[in-house]
């Protein structure tokens, strides 16, 4: 699993990258009450704002962690946004993408580096 400074995790499943937010991020956000997902088929560039999350406190964005195409989104989060708090690093993944530059994954943090990053 790889991690971004924006507190996303990325898991490689046979060349398709599954993306969600970390336990740490979900704790910081507080109870999530709304999730807006991107459209399947959308081409995204690293740092594009592609997901909106609203918690009881505020709205925030999830940025595309790498370049690629959105191939699947987790529709259950639209109806049950609270899942993001219950299982952020498991069932509550946000989207899957097909990377156009898989080497971009190499620039991201591994788990040890991420743990150090969040202190």
């Amino acid at each position: 699993m790889k991690f971004t400074e924006e507190h996303e995790w990325l898991r490689d499943e046979d060349g398709v990258i599954v993306v969600g937010i970390t336990e740490h991020a979900s704790e910081q956000l507080g109870d999530v009450v709304f999730v807006e997902l991107p459209e399947v088929g959308k081409q995204v560039t690293k740092d594009d704002e592609i997901v909106v999350i609203e918690s009881v406190k505020a709205a925030s964005d999830i940025l595309a962690p790498i370049d690629g195409e959105i191939v699947e989104v987790n529709e259950t989060l639209t109806d049950e946004p609270g899942k993001v708090n219950d299982d952020p690093q498991g069932d509550a993944w946000f989207f899957k993408m097909k990377p156009s530059e898989p080497s971009q994954m190499d620039d991201l943090m591994d788990e040890a580096a991420y743990k150090k990053y969040i202190g």
């Binding site: 507080g30 109870d31 009450v33 009881v56 406190k57 609270g82 708090n85």
Partner: peptide, 9 residues
């Protein structure tokens, strides 16, 4: 602003 229970609960 909140306790460990969280705003919603």
């Amino acid at each position: 602003v909140q306790y460990p229970m969280g705003v919603m609960k």
